[in-house]
Amino acid sequence: MTRIPFFDIVRDAMRGAKRTQTDAVESKAGEAEETPRRRVMIVGNPNVGKSVLFNRLTGHYMVVSNYPGTTVEVARGRMRLGETLYEVVDTPGMYSLRPLSEEERVGRALILNEAADAVLHVADAKNLERMLPFTLQLIEAGLPVILVVNMMDEAERIGVKIDMEALQDAVGVPVVGTAVLSGRGLEELRNAIDEFIRSRTPAAVSV
């Protein structure tokens, strides 16, 4: 999918402003007794499919923009894997851990202030070279990173091939290839998150 929802970005920004309230209401109505015990944070450059992934994981509908830099506000949703309820946080687009814009500052503040059991770094498969420096920084920072190489379909279409095993060996964290718009790789990603968290010592989450 390569269409540019030119107006959607606008609507997205508007919804972003209202999203927090809606979420609060929904969580009250939906899962009144249960609080999530784990947290997954979605990070990455603008325009790599973070918000689509967020929607797919949480089933929480949100219009997704295709323009860089528009997930201005933070979206929160819930996801269940097996018996565990997760909070999923969609962060604003970030290029690196060293923030330059207000949005990036928000993103880093989230990373700094909220412990996550898994940090999904969503990267554009067409442009790995531009994406990986941020992966390195996240790993360097000791965060529980899973690298999500998204838009595999688009990369394949233009003839880019990625050796996922070799990539996983090189970065030393789990790597999952996805095309979230079409749903490809989502099941694998869910399993990877589940397995990843099981394999690690439990983190204390205070939601």
């Binding site: 070279e129 990986l132 050796d163 070799a166």
Partner: peptide
């Protein structure tokens, strides 16, 4: 330097048409 590291990885892992 980060970029150099990354390029070493992508050269091995990614093949372009």
């Amino acid at each position: 330097q980060r970029h150099t590291t990354v390029r070493a990885v992508t050269e091995r892992v990614v093949s372009h048409p």
